[in-house]
Design a protein around this nucleic acid. Structure first.
Lengths: 139, 139
DNA sequence: ACGATTATATCGTAATACGATATATATCAA
DNA sequence: TTGATATATATCGTATTACGATATAATCGT
């Protein structure tokens, strides 16, 4: 790891990358908040909805996807169930597991949020790609 | 905003994007933690170091860059000063302002972290660009 | 069947950003 | 110049949320 070839431009570019990501996260959190959803709850809904594969989403799989501890996912899901966005169902095949499903309410909110995010990403992506290319010209 | 053309693939791609970003943030937070720095303190150091322009970084400018309230930046900087990473200096031109500078300790830590991040981004960037392109084929 | 593992849950704690508010300095209009 | 307003930073109490430690139930391997 040759540290000595770091230039001012490297620090500036990395700072710009983080600033750009932060603005995206901030946009996302604000959009979710307008729908009455804390950011992490929105991420959970997206992870459940965007989950591919035949098997339904579980608490443990959600934890992996969100990079949080399983017991944190438990708490997150509890909040979502309390707010009426998610239903918990015991997995008949493995009674330890709780399979998760979105309610109609969640589907509606998530559809609006996702559409807004795709629009935002359309604006964001070119800038992001430029910054990434600036950091590694060979991309 | 035509919501009705959202496909399963859209949700999945957006979910994948967030997962990828999350892993980058997680890598970053872990790397900072190994250096003894909470993630947000690392971001503050990077923002100060990556700040371009003749004028020195101030609390207010840092707040803008980190997308936090000015009084939250005050608290963040207080933690950094207490930990010996940043020095506060009254701006002679405007005595309301506090200009910020990195200590030698911070320079060393930040150099190592930045090098590690550039390496990580080299791996991350292609996947990220693919996902962004998948969301908007015209990129 | 039983010990080990997996999945989920509970509770107290810690970190950190915010709201409300305060103080000092600067700017601008009359 | 003076007084009102705006700007920059600071303080304190609070709320959110993920975590550590721990617990319980179900499943699996031998």
């Amino acid at each position: 790891m040759q540290n000595d070839d770091l230039t001012d431009a490297d620090y500036e570019a990395l700072s710009n990358l983080r600033y750009t990501l932060r603005r995206f996260m901030d946009f996302s959190a604000s959009a979710a908040q307008l729908e009455g959803l804390p950011a992490q709850q929105h991420q959970a809904l997206l992870a459940i909805r965007g989950h591919r594969g035949a098997e339904a989403m579980t608490i443990g799989a959600l934890a992996e996807r969100l990079l949080i501890a399983p017991h944190s996912a438990t708490e997150l899901v509890s909040r979502l169930v309390a707010a009426g966005y998610v239903s918990r169902n015991a997995d008949p095949a493995d009674k330890r597991k709780q399979t998760l499903a979105l309610t109609g309410k969640a589907e509606g909110v998530l559809k609006r949020l996702t559409a807004a995010h795709l629009t935002e990403i359309k604006e964001l992506a070119p800038r992001l790609i430029d910054i990434l290319r600036g950091l590694h010209p060979d991309l």
